[in-house]
């Protein structure tokens, strides 16, 4: 069974973001991520608008798994969304 697409909006400095990436890595789940704090100018603005569409509070990590949006490193919800 193929896994749903996983995308993480993260901060390079955030411990919850690091824990999320480590967890997914340990579970051999493929994911994309964008460290929003490392972006600048128009690109940063555009990505922030994207994050707000999924999570109006624009907090991190904002994790998109298929159609589901998970705010924060919530292991149980992540596992459920991945069908684990």
């Amino acid at each position: 069974m193929s896994q749903p697409d996983v995308k993480i909006f993260s901060l390079s400095t955030c411990s919850h973001c690091k824990a999320t990436k480590k967890f997914l890595g340990d579970c051999t789940i493929k994911y994309e991520f964008i460290n929003v704090d490392q972006l600048q100018g128009d690109e940063r603005k555009a990505i922030i608008e994207d994050v707000k569409k999924f999570n109006p509070r624009c907090s991190f990590p904002t994790i998109i798994i298929g159609e589901k949006v998970i705010v924060g490193f919530k292991e149980k919800e992540i596992k459920e969304a991945l069908g684990m």
């Binding site: 901060l11 400095t13 955030c14 919850h16 973001c17 690091k18 929003v36 704090d37 922030i48 991190f60």
Partner: peptide
């Protein structure tokens, strides 16, 4: 220590030790 290092990154980047878990 991961968080303390991140605070120092923010200090270097912005001049203040803003929360590492929030977008500054």
């Amino acid at each position: 220590f991961e968080l303390l290092e991140a605070l120092l990154v923010n200090k270097e980047r912005h001049g203040y030790m803003g929360c590492p878990c929030r977008l500054l």
